[in-house]
Every structure is written in C-alpha cells, then in structure tokens.
Measured scan of single mutants.
Amino acid sequence: RKESAFKSMLKQAAPPIELDAVWEDIRERFVKEPAFEDITLESERKRIFKDFMHVLEHEC
C-alpha cells in the first residue's frame, strides 16, 4: 500500500527523523523518493507524517 511505503521511507530515513521534526523542514529530503511521489496530496503526506511521529513518540 502507498501509505505503508511512505511510512517505510520515513522510518528508513538517514539520518533518522528526530522527535521534534516538522514536516516542512524535512519534506525536501524525500521529494525525489517514489513513495513520496505516489502520495499526490500534500495533506495526505502530512497526515501520514503525523501518524508516523505519533508512533515514534510512543516507541521512546
């Protein structure tokens, strides 16, 4: 699924995404990734990013 691929892309980011990361600041790192391009709505990208950050916070 496209959403899973997007989350995997975020999870495998190098360097890892920090807990205090803001979408607008890290977005540039992913613009050339196929998983990024597959999610065409920016609002959807932000939503998935927020979900990812929520999970990340609870893993720590």
Rank of each mutant, 00 (worst) to 15 (best):
E33G: 01
F30R: 02
E44W: 06
K11S: 14
V22T: 13
H58E: 14
I48H: 08
F30V: 03
L41F: 14
R27V: 03
K32P: 05
E44P: 02
M9P: 00
V31C: 09
F36Q: 00
L56Y: 09
H54W: 10
I17D: 00
H54C: 10
L41I: 13
I17K: 00
A5D: 15
I48Q: 05
F52L: 07
V55H: 09
A14S: 14
E3L: 03
D38Y: 06
M9K: 01
E3A: 07
R45K: 04
P34F: 06
A14R: 10
A21S: 08
T40H: 14
L56V: 11
K11M: 11
F49L: 02
D20L: 06
M53I: 06
R45I: 00
I17V: 09
L10Y: 02
H54T: 14
C60Q: 06
M9G: 01
F6E: 01
W23K: 01
A35Y: 03
D20I: 04
A21G: 05
R29N: 06
E44T: 13
M53V: 09
K11R: 12
I17T: 02
E28N: 15
P16S: 10
K46Y: 09
I17Y: 01
F36N: 03
V31G: 10
I17G: 00
W23C: 02
E3S: 03
A21Y: 03
E59K: 15
K32H: 07
I48G: 02
K46H: 07
K50G: 12
W23M: 00
A13L: 03
L41Q: 12
I17A: 00
V31T: 09
A21R: 04
W23S: 01
A14G: 05
Q12I: 06
S43G: 10
F36S: 02
K50Y: 10
A13V: 06
F30P: 02
C60N: 03
L10H: 01
M53N: 05
F36Y: 08
E59V: 06
E24R: 04
A35E: 12
D20H: 08
R1K: 13
M53G: 03
I17R: 02
I39T: 02
E37W: 08
F6D: 00
F36A: 01
E3W: 02
S8W: 12
A35F: 02
A13T: 11
D51F: 02
R47D: 08
H54V: 14
E37P: 03
E18I: 08
I48P: 00
P15D: 05
A13K: 04
H58R: 12
D20R: 09
D25W: 03
V55M: 10
I48R: 00
L19H: 08
K32S: 11
E59C: 11
E44N: 09
E24L: 04
E44S: 06
P34K: 12
A35P: 07
R29M: 08
C60I: 11
L10M: 03
D20Y: 07
D20E: 10
I26V: 04
F36E: 01
D38N: 13
F30A: 01
F6T: 00
V55A: 12
P15Q: 06
H58P: 15
E44R: 05
K32L: 08
A21F: 04
E3V: 11
K50C: 14
W23H: 03
R47H: 06
C60G: 10
A5T: 15
E59W: 05
D51A: 10
L19K: 15
L19M: 13
H54K: 15
K50L: 13
C60A: 05
A14D: 08
F30G: 02
P34S: 11
R1G: 15
D51L: 06
S8D: 10
F49G: 02
L10R: 01
I48S: 02
A13M: 05
E24G: 08
A21P: 02
I17N: 01
K11F: 05
D25N: 11
F36I: 01
S4I: 13
C60L: 09
A14L: 11
R45L: 00
P16I: 04
K46I: 15
E57C: 06
T40F: 05
E18V: 12
M53T: 09
A5P: 04
